[in-house]
Design a protein around this nucleic acid. Structure first.
Lengths: 205, 205
DNA sequence: CAGCCTTCGTGACAGTAATCACAGCTATCC
DNA sequence: GGATAGCTGTGATTACTGTCACGAAGGCTG
């Protein structure tokens, strides 16, 4: 696929280098791209699809941090890559996903030689840091009802759809809550005329 | 003061540059170093003392993110600096504090020219990102009692003391909880023989 | 010493969310 | 069509936390 349209900001020599050295790879929906504690060998750029980045704790609980979309990159994989650390996060393909994997050992040179790459990396750091901060905001200051509204809004923006094909259980998992709580809150939102509930689908107004 | 000992990893030409261009500044305990929404003009390196970085919400709630110690730098100020964004966090001197302020406009060149600076910045990003992640872990997965234990442990490590001079109210603020809750939990911990309570002081065992 | 402020202890109550229990409903697969 | 599995709705109960109320104790100041 023609990935240059997805990263139009990259300068031609950088594109050439990536073309030569990077590996393109496909993941099916549900595939695990990176798991907690795994050693990182590549920086991941998303070309197509959607990747869910989440935190996992020992007793099976999970917690959504953010989604990665085409044109975005995994900040963790960059930072870890540069320092050869392991990842502290899980990454799973939410849809069928295409990524470009750039070997770690190229990172240093790329940072030095290609201004557009350097800017992209800095940009990525900041964006992820901000998203992480807004996650903290939400769990620290908001109740589940507000967090749920925020989640649905974000999900709709990310997928570009008003009809969200997602089950209550999945939402509960992402918010580290339980299905019953989410069902009840959704019901209340339906009564407030913010949305309409269907099977396996939530229609936002 | 001789700050070179605090950043021994910097290469000599970088030290010269900083010596020439950076401004050293003192803050008294309690001074606000950076406030939410403020435009950032300098990157802050901590020489002495301790800076508390926290998030503030509209109704006066606050939430501790992390502390900065001598030898550390504010990742936010770096990212924001490079991109001329505003800060989303508050920074307050917890003790009398000395910092070095490096004007924003030098950042790009420093990143390109000084390997040790580049590494320091990357290192800082990663460290702050990780700390932020552990904050998320705590509020997402842990109850107040565990969060309190974690807080006390971290506080003790950061100050290097077993006798923490801090009031229940201050702890409650940092954890975005209330004084009564903290008092009760501390009492329980005292009964479990983990610590001893005094006025304005908590003695860890 | 008397007044005052801050800190701390504790009981009572309320609201949020997690958990358990169970029932109905839809879709799919033999 | 009947069995089965997954999704949804709802009540009852419980645990945790935040809020209100009030009192006691320590320390500071005039």
């Amino acid at each position: 696929m023609n990935w240059k349209n997805i990263f139009p900001q990259f300068e031609p020599p950088l594109i050439e280098l990536i073309e030569k050295e990077a590996v393109q790879r496909s993941f099916a929906a549900g595939d695990i791209i990176m798991r907690t504690g795994q050693y990182i060998k590549s920086t991941v750029l998303v070309l197509e699809g959607r990747i869910k980045i989440y935190r996992e704790n020992q007793d099976g609980g999970e917690f959504l941090i953010y989604y990665l979309e085409p044109g975005q990159a995994c900040a963790v994989s960059m930072i870890c890559a540069i320092q050869s650390h392991t990842s502290e996060l899980m990454a799973v393909a939410e849809e069928d996903t295409e990524v470009l994997m750039i070997p770690v050992h190229l990172m240093d040179d790329m940072m030095n030689q290609y201004k557009t790459w350097y800017q992209f990396v800095i940009q990525t750091y900041r964006a992820r840091f901000d998203e992480l901060l807004s996650v903290v905001d939400n769990i620290a200051f908001r109740n589940m009802d507000e967090r749920l509204e925020f989640f649905l809004k974000r999900y709709s923006e990310k997928t570009g759809k008003k009809k969200l094909e997602i089950s209550h259980q999945q939402i509960a998992d992402d918010l580290n809550s339980s299905r019953e709580v989410i069902s009840r809150l959704l019901k209340k939102m339906e009564q407030r005329n913010l949305l309409k509930l269907h099977r396996n689908m939530i229609e936002l107004f």
